[in-house]
Design a protein around this nucleic acid. Structure first.
Length: 278
DNA sequence: CGGCAGGGAGGCC
DNA sequence: GGCCTCCCTGCC
């Protein structure tokens, strides 16, 4: 096990807040097998203990967990009101993750009108049946298959994994990636709006899923995904976000204008806080 | 007046 | 949630 000292970071809050389906609880820590290898991390106090199936340096882990994000500054900038102050206080060590693009995209296609346990289950079923196997800590872990593999599976076969009608989204989106109709790599270097528009060209990817990929995989920290929970928070506390229009685009744009360049972090704090306390 | 873009509503997957 | 279709509105 390697060691990495951290500050202002809480692993379990970051893993359990609902932002990632690439990381899974394992023993006293969490495992991510979707990065071309298998990575294990656990936290004791301010120290992270980590291990991996091939090799992983501190820099890579720092990127995956966004440990270099200036959290003090971020929280200072998004803390615009009393509710946000409480939401930050509820999980001050919560950081946005940086998950790999394709697995993140697939997991959020699985999330469409689905509950978290079932999202985890269906994602894991895809990994178990089609993904590469890694060995770590005397245990086998399956990672998310790549687009080439997924595109070759008949939608009906995917459907039976519990994916139902989402299978069509996954099959067609995977095919589009294989055909390079949309280039996932590269979307982190172009502006958020352009990446969002580009992602929506994929069949099954709408405003919300595109924002999740922008935030959790591409590092576009201004992305503000609006799901039913965040929508409730908006209705109850941020009526101002609906003043210039009730469409998704207008509301998320208003949230970005209000919270600023780190609106995605604000969304995470609000999401986690509201789901666990309201 | 017509044509057409944009947003809301409902049904279906 | 996303897609599709229908319908209303607003605009030049």
């Amino acid at each position: 096990m390697q060691k990495l000292r951290t500050r202002d970071f809480n692993l379990s809050d970051s893993m359990e807040c609902g932002q990632t389906f690439c990381w899974q609880k394992h023993g006293e820590g969490y495992v991510n097998a979707d990065v071309g290898q298998c990575v294990y991390v656990q936290q004791k106090g301010d120290t992270l203990f980590f291990d991996s199936s091939s090799q992983l340096n501190e820099t890579s882990l720092t990127e995956m967990l966004r440990l270099s994000d200036p959290l003090d500054q971020i929280q200072g900038e998004v803390c615009k009101d009393e509710l946000m102050r409480r939401a930050i206080q509820y999980a001050p060590g919560l950081r946005v993750v940086k998950d790999p693009e394709f697995p993140c995209l697939i997991s959020f296609l699985c999330s469409i009108r689905n509950n978290i346990p079932n999202i985890r289950k269906t994602c894991q079923e895809i990994r178990r049946r089609y993904g590469p196997v890694y060995r770590l800590m005397d245990t086998e872990f399956h990672g998310m298959p790549g687009p080439e593999r997924l595109a070759g599976i008949p939608p009906d076969e995917l459907r039976e994994l519990g994916l139902d009608w989402r299978a069509e989204f996954i099959a067609r989106t995977s095919m589009s990636i294989v055909r390079e109709e949309v280039m996932l790599s590269g979307l982190c270097q172009i502006p958020y709006e352009e990446a969002h528009t580009e992602l929506k060209r994929l069949y099954g990817v709408g405003d919300k899923v595109a924002d999740c990929v922008c935030l959790f995989a591409l590092g576009h920290l201004e992305a503000f995904p609006i799901d039913v929970w965040i929508e409730r928070v908006i209705q109850k506390h941020y009526g101002i976000f609906t003043q210039s229009g009730k469409s998704y685009a207008k509301k998320s744009e208003a949230a970005r204008a209000y919270f600023g360049r780190y609106a995605g972090y604000a969304q995470e704090y609000l999401y986690y806080y509201s789901r666990n306390t309201f």
